[in-house]
Design a protein around this nucleic acid. Structure first.
Lengths: 152, 152
DNA sequence: GACAAGTAGTTGTATATACAACTATACTGT
DNA sequence: ACAGTATAGTTGTATATACAACTACTTGTC
């Protein structure tokens, strides 16, 4: 007595879960993106790049490390970094040990911008994460996502 | 004795979690998208639309319901449905009770395409979800994401 | 029943991203 | 040392999406 006339289970538990992941991500990214854009004039993709740079040990990464970290194509990353560089938030530096490679380093301006954005981001998270999930639940979610994210 | 010279906690637990969500989603969408595209010639966005239509009680939704379900702008949804309609996978129908509205219904061709894609998707999930998370963990993840996705 | 306000969808335009082809450099094996 | 292969990044081009302005219709109020 199913409403679905199909032979294929669109209601499969894994299919649902995947859909949920897609949807949750899309909603959160969109609302955070709007907030960062309106308050800091900083697109989410830029914020992501700056954050990756700050998380890196030396405040700089090679192009392909950035592309991998933010899950973009290398071509897309070139253009993205172009825009960030024009805006003065990052700078390209030659890599002494490999003349093919480029180091992308966050600038002082970029650091300031990131600080501002991180404050907005923290407020956003306080309002949208912390009100929906307890600290324990957030830990569980982080564990599950980490497992899901593992390469093999 | 922190490596981060910044006053702002890029290492904050919530910031990390959000980043993890973004990254996990991006990796999974990308790999599934490539797989669906190469095996079924079906972009992930199209698959998403067809799936939403099948999940709906009558196999049809209005434009704005689709836009909301797949988290796109209404303009973007118009263009997306245009392409699906040209491909013969969905069809626009007038809504008798509201002449502004449009019903988008999945066609027979669309249903067949979706069945094929769902099989690929299930294989993908078997390989990428089921190997990383147990059934219990998947249930936990679904619960957490549902909470996170709740509007308020 | 007419006018104001709200809602559904489309279209013009700008932009961001992907893919594939390309250049330049580095590595590897003989 | 050289040839062949692999890697880092950029560029040409196509496409998908967003935003804002627009049209058409509906709903509520007087």
């Amino acid at each position: 007595m199913s409403l679905q006339p199909s032979p294929c289970p669109s209601g499969d538990e894994k299919v649902q879960l995947f859909g949920l992941l897609l949807e949750t991500n899309a909603r959160l990214s969109r609302s955070l993106g709007l907030e960062l854009e309106s308050t800091c004039d900083l697109p989410l993709a830029w914020f992501d790049v700056l954050l990756q740079l700050r998380k890196s040990p030396e405040g700089r990464l090679k192009m392909n490390q950035i592309a991998d970290a933010i899950v973009h194509s290398t071509g897309g990353t070139t253009r993205l970094i172009d825009r960030l560089e024009v805006a003065g938030l990052v700078e390209r530096q030659n890599c002494p040990s490999d003349r093919r490679a480029i180091h992308v380093a966050i600038t002082d301006v970029g650091n300031e911008k990131l600080d501002t954005a991180l404050n907005v981001h923290l407020g956003y998270l306080e309002e949208n994460l912390a009100t929906r999930l307890t600290k324990v639940e957030r830990g569980q979610l982080a564990d599950l996502l980490t497992k899901l994210n593992e390469t093999r």
